[in-house]
């Protein structure tokens, strides 16, 4: 019993092709990876927008903006 196509090395090496686990589940793995990829972007864009919003609320005072544009910060 093995997750890979091999459960021992008593083989003719010239006949061995695939060596990764769960052969036959490639489409499922791709679906999982694509979902993770898209979910990451959804999280990231929300995170980035919230960061800008918080930065403006916390730090964009007229005093900070004056200092930033006069080179004091």
């Amino acid at each position: 019993m093995s997750t890979t196509p091999l459960d021992n090395w008593a083989v003719d090496l010239g006949d061995v092709t695939l060596i990764y686990p769960f052969v036959g589940q490639e489409k499922l793995m791709v679906i999982v990876a694509v979902v993770l990829w898209i979910a990451w972007h959804i999280w990231q864009v929300k995170f980035e927008n919230n960061t800008y919003k918080e930065d403006i609320e916390k730090h964009a005072t007229s005093e900070n903006l004056r200092k930033a544009t006069s080179g004091e910060l």
Partner: peptide, 20 residues
């Protein structure tokens, strides 16, 4: 509205919050 950073953030600097 997702291309350019807000004007205030550009003036303060993108790392302002982190630096603070």
């Amino acid at each position: 509205g997702q291309l350019r950073i807000p004007r205030e953030v550009e003036l303060l600097g993108l790392d302002f919050g982190n630096m603070r």
